[in-house]
Design a protein around this nucleic acid. Structure first.
Lengths: 218, 218
DNA sequence: TAATTTTATTAGGCATACCTAACAAAGTTA
DNA sequence: TAACTTTGTTAGGTATGCCTAATAAAATTA
């Protein structure tokens, strides 16, 4: 089944919301926000995707992916992350620049292209943001990670990924001197608002709860 | 001015027809054939492109590119040929496989992407089919070449490019044992139908006029 | 030049994917 | 549980880019 650029984006977004959120299903408004479209448009598209047996959905219900839908979504995610890796490693793109271009590249249709790219990059397992890259058959290596906000005071952890891939967030991360595989020591945490003091490369920084919830560590 | 995928394709096709044909302008039907759409669709699009000052056109007249239109077309051609080179040199695509995928890749919008790719490939000047790759400012290195059909009997020439980039033609070229930079000696030519006998790597082959008109040599 | 053929244009439709505005269902809170 | 808020749906509209069928202009040939 060949899907349009838009249909692929819907499936990918549903997949990403399911992967990021704690919930097992997604709502219309939530998906609309993720895709920067209106809920009415999402509703329309869900009918199409349901007719194509890509989503599991009934009126006023929650959105889930069917097996076929998940297969497509994972494939798009694989392409996205491989392209990000290519841009970062081979074309000297910075951490915060790769996402936007990969949003376009992920829709190029060619099995051979993506598998050759995978080989060319020497079968990378994680993209520049620390997200796992699905393999050719769709298997995703899951890393048991938690957010920085969950780390105990006094403990030291290692940053392995970021939740938010937006350019503005990543630029802020860079400005703090942080990157994948850096060590972070949690010095203190305000119980009032979750703001915390962390130590990175000998420097102490103060970050918000919102920030620490977007950094994955092990 | 940001153009759609389709608009870019129209400009590219006009440019390619102008470059390939001997004529200085292009007709509606000709362009429709090149794009695999109907003349009515071309006519419609020409109105849009004219409104955007990308083509020079009046009712029942011939189609030309404006300066702005040519700039865009050359940029798309640059992207196409750089991607073809990437696929061929880095991802082990064969000669006849690169065109189709490059048709998609050429529309990715990112100045940085294409210039980084150019650098990564070490600023190639010709693509795998021997076509010149426009540089960052749109300059195209023209090679004074002729078709194999024009070579004198008894003369030896060097194949530098192909006119037709279709997979079927290229596969035939490969099957003859021919590739870019190969030497070809013209043994004889039928004045009746232009069929000719050529010598490649010590082997003699008989090829049609249609074939020899699609091989560029110096 | 008149008839014919080719080429180009217009009118009216269709599918995709978006939108706004009005309305309906579900969920929340007093 | 009634009122209110949030979430989801429907109806009707828009732009893009394609189509067919009818028509008009241009080019060719008799």
């Amino acid at each position: 089944m060949d899907l349009s650029y838009s249909e692929e984006n819907y499936l990918k977004s549903i997949f990403n919301l399911l992967a990021t959120n704690t919930t097992a299903a997604v709502g219309t408004t939530e998906l609309a926000m993720q895709l920067s479209v209106k809920p009415a448009s999402v509703n329309e598209m869900l009918k199409k995707l349901k007719a194509k047996k890509m989503v599991d959905y009934k009126k006023y219900g929650k959105i889930k992916l069917t097996k076929a839908g998940k297969t497509i979504a994972v494939d798009v995610v694989r392409k996205h992350r491989l392209w990000e890796t290519f841009l970062y490693e081979k074309l000297d793109f910075s951490w915060d620049e790769v996402h936007e271009v990969a949003e376009e590249l992920e829709h190029i249709q060619s099995r051979k292209l993506i598998n050759s790219l995978d080989k060319f990059l020497n079968y990378p397992r994680f993209d520049p943001h620390g997200d796992p890259i699905p393999d050719e058959v769709g298997v995703i290596q899951q890393q048991s990670k938690k957010t920085l906000s969950e780390v105990a005071i006094g403990a030291t952890c290692k940053m392995v990924a970021v939740k938010d891939n937006s350019s503005s967030f990543l630029q802020y991360v860079i400005s703090l001197g942080l990157g994948i595989n850096n060590s972070i020591k949690v010095m203190s945490r305000e119980s009032f608002d979750g703001q915390m003091s962390i130590r990175i490369n000998g420097e102490t920084k103060t970050v918000s709860q919102k920030f620490s919830e977007n950094i994955y560590v092990i």
